[in-house]
Design a protein around this nucleic acid. Structure first.
Length: 739
DNA sequence: ATGATGATATTTTTT
DNA sequence: ATATCATCAT
């Protein structure tokens, strides 16, 4: 017996999965059960032990990060770079296919990828051109309509309006949008997937080639696949390949953007011979944390069934803290973090997780004030910044003249005297001839356009032409640099003496650095460097911040936290209406997805888990009273230790509702400095006006109090009337009668 | 062409 | 409270 680096580190269940016969396999892998490990070891096993050619393996993930991680780990296991191994995201692989087969896919060779923001701009343009009212036809909704249909595999021709004029219009807009994309030679994210699906569906020769090549298809986070992704996989796999899919129905939290957990069950039906493996031993969390998560998720119906266990210690109880308000909540978390650090802990061990991004603000304020280093994940990434996208638009135009969106974006940036009127002329001309804005402009020079506008436009066209010639053959970063100089973009921002101008100029410099750093990682396609770079930045705009590896508290939404782990986790804002979110509370599916999200959050914690909520929270500028999240009640009580602050002098006596249990569990006492806003908590708005109380109004009838704000006669209450709906009323005038 | 003004909405996010 | 966005005025 010799040491086997591929199989030795695995437990029995993992090993069974990794060494599954070369046939379809489904692995249900609970949180922290070694999912990635099984995937990577399976690949290594196929190549290393089973002599499978790396060429015949395709591994698909959802994020670039996961793909990168998988590649690194496989390489480390095998001790070599398995060269032609295809590991990538669904979108990345689809892109690769479309680049290779652009002709068969009906694209132009230099097609460009647009992100969600570009997509929305395009839709807005369309609405304007169609003279449709944006309040009636909300761009976001149209975008959603288009994307969900693409995700479901539907083209506008295949959609039925069913006598619904609104729907008919949506379908028409979808069609117009498609035409606009085709004219511009751009492809959105959903299109990458749909288009490559159609490529295989409609080009048997192409499909045949890939079917023969990829005998082993591995899929990560299978519960997150949407319809088109699954259809794409099924097409590829056919009847001969061995799909090896790994997923966890309890961690399906992207239903709202088209992910279909049902694909897990569907897989079993589509591949009846598939072997099922369960990974239930958790290596991440303490017994208490797992028990809490298990107890919570047991409230969901229709699970595939899976219970995490650990051979490790029970660990500390789950800590629950009821804060007065969001400030208090943040102060509590901050206090605990400082204690952790005082005892020799590091900041990066800690994650503050919340349901929505807006919640990060208060934490940031407190952390800033107390000099706790932190990092917020999410928000605008580098390549999504406006100034970067401006620069990219120039680059795209250099590559593809018919990219109308990019044309419009930069034609007058920096301002060169091309106003709305000239642009409208050009747009109209383009519409008539069905040509690109670029071509239309050429046709309009000196004709439809006045002398002045013509000069300006000619200047722009010549700039682009000149630049194209000038940068030909240069190094990528030189190309970017020349573009920035020639277009005057950098200068434009430098002239803005405000701080943001400076920052933007710096970001543009950074773009040059990014271009310089690019290249090594480019092995995929034989695309020219600039084209490859453009595809890279839209497709892998991700994690430009990963370099900031300081010791800091990690702050992110629960969604972002999926797949990560931290020794100490604070799950904040555990209030009904916030988490579960108000908009998900209405439906069972919505609520269950929120519950899974909570499950994901809990299982991020390795050693300590804190749940916190605020009894009063200021949201959108108004104070809301809220109930603790139902997820707290669904967590087995015996696992929870409630932390209540010991009463301090600054504590108002009137806060009687805390008096009885104040300090009972308070192992630690917190100095609560007084801050404004608490008084309203102590004094009810008026007698009988409590949250949830029934009231009668002279005109509106009976209703239930949803919210209270302020105190005394100026106080306002939000009442949900049985017949009139929800209204805000001022106590002074409302004349509400308690029931 | 630029900035002030007012209206509006405000889960979650990768690619 | 606040951020974004369209419209309007300068």
């Amino acid at each position: 017996m010799t040491a086997d680096p591929i199989l030795d580190p695995l437990n029995a269940a993992q090993r069974a999965a990794v060494t599954a016969p070369l046939a379809p396999a489904l692995v249900l892998a609970g949180a922290g059960s070694g999912k990635t490990r099984v995937l990577t070891h399976r690949i290594a096993w196929l190549i290393g032990t089973h002599q499978v050619s790396p060429q015949s393996i395709l591994a698909v993930t959802f994020t670039n990060k996961a793909a990168g991680e998988m590649r690194t780990r496989v390489e480390r296991l095998l001790g070599i770079a398995p060269g032609v191994l295809w590991i990538g995201t669904f979108h990345g692989i689809a892109h690769r296919l479309l680049r290779r087969h652009w002709r068969e896919a009906g694209l132009i060779e230099s097609f460009q990828i647009i992100d969600a923001e570009d997509q929305q701009r395009l839709i807005k343009k369309l609405l304007k051109a169609e003279q449709l009212d944006e309040t009636r036809w909300v761009p976001r909704e149209i975008q959603w309509f288009i994307n969900t249909n693409k995700d479901a595999g539907h083209r506008p021709q295949g959609l039925k309006s069913g006598n619904d004029p609104t729907r008919a219009q949506m379908i028409r807009l979808y069609g117009l949008y498609e035409a606009a994309c085709a004219r511009s030679g751009v492809v959105d994210f959903a299109e990458l997937l749909l288009r490559s699906f159609e490529l295989w569906r409609d080009q048997p020769a192409v499909l045949q080639h890939y079917r023969q090549r990829f005998r082993h298809v591995l899929v990560d986070e299978f519960q997150d696949t949407n319809s088109i992704q699954y259809a794409w996989l099924k097409l590829l796999v056919g009847s001969q390949s061995c799909p090896f899919v790994v997923g966890d129905d309890d961690q399906s939290v992207y239903g709202w953007r088209g992910a279909r957990v049902e694909n897990l069950q569907q897989f079993g039906r589509d591949f009846p011979a598939a072997q099922l493996f369960r990974l239930e031993q958790n290596y991440r969390s303490t017994g208490a944390i797992l028990a809490a998560a298990n107890g919570l998720i047991a409230n969901n119906a229709g699970r595939l069934g899976k219970t995490l266990w650990t051979s490790g210690a029970q660990g500390e109880p789950i800590r629950l803290y009821a804060a007065f308000n969001e400030r208090d909540e943040a102060e509590f978390v901050c206090q605990r973090i400082r204690e952790h650090v005082t005892r020799g802990g590091v900041h990066r061990d800690i994650a503050v997780l919340y349901r929505s991004n807006a919640q990060s603000r208060v934490f940031e304020e407190i952390f800033l004030a107390t000099r706790v280093p932190y990092r917020v994940y999410g928000g605008l990434r580098f390549f999504e910044r406006a100034e970067i996208k401006d620069a990219l638009a120039y680059l795209r135009l250099l590559v593809n003249r018919s990219d109308d969106a990019s044309f419009e974006r930069v034609v007058n940036l920096p301002t060169r005297g091309i106003g709305a009127k000239s642009l409208e002329t050009v747009r109209a001309a383009a519409r008539v001839t069905g040509s690109s804005l670029w071509e239309a402009t050429q046709a309009c020079l000196g004709e439809a356009l006045g002398a002045r506008a013509s000069t300006a436009m000619r200047g722009f066209l010549e700039l682009i032409e000149r630049l194209t010639a000038e940068i030909h053959g240069l190094d990528l970063h030189e190309q970017v640099d020349r573009m920035l100089a020639a277009t005057g973009l950098i200068e434009f921002h430098q002239r803005d003496k405000a701080e943001r101008g400076e920052a933007r100029a710096e970001n543009l410099e950074e773009l040059v650095s990014a271009a310089r750093g690019f290249g090594a990682e480019r092995s995929d396609t034989d695309l020219p460097p600039l084209e490859a770079f453009l595809a890279h930045v839209t497709l892998e705009s991700g994690d430009g911040q990963a370099d900031a590896w300081e010791d800091s508290v990690q702050m992110m939404t629960l969604h972002t936290a999926k797949g990560l782990e931290f020794p100490i986790v604070f799950l904040c804002g555990m209030e009904d209406g916030l988490f579960p979110h108000q908009r998900s509370i209405g439906t069972l599916e919505g609520l269950e997805e929120e519950r899974r999200l909570c499950y994901v959050g809990m299982t991020r914690a390795m050693r300590q888990l804190y749940l916190t909520y605020a009894e009063q929270r200021r949201l959108h500028g108004i104070d809301n009273f809220s109930q603790p999240s139902r997820f707290i009640k669904e967590t087995p009580e015996e696992l929870i230790e409630e932390i209540r602050p010991r009463i301090q002098v600054s504590r108002p006596v009137a806060a009687g509702r805390f008096a009885e249990d104040g300090g009972v569990h308070g192992a630690v006492s917190y100095r609560r400095t007084g801050y404004p806003g608490r008084s309203s908590h102590a004094e009810p708005a008026a007698p009988g006006m409590r949250l949830g109380a029934r009231v009668r109004h002279g005109k509106f009838g009976e209703g239930v109090i949803l919210n209270l704000e302020g105190s005394g006669p100026q106080a306002r209450v939000q009442v949900n009337f049985e017949r009139q709906g929800t209204k805000w009323l001022v106590m002074q005038y409302a004349n509400l009668e308690p029931l």
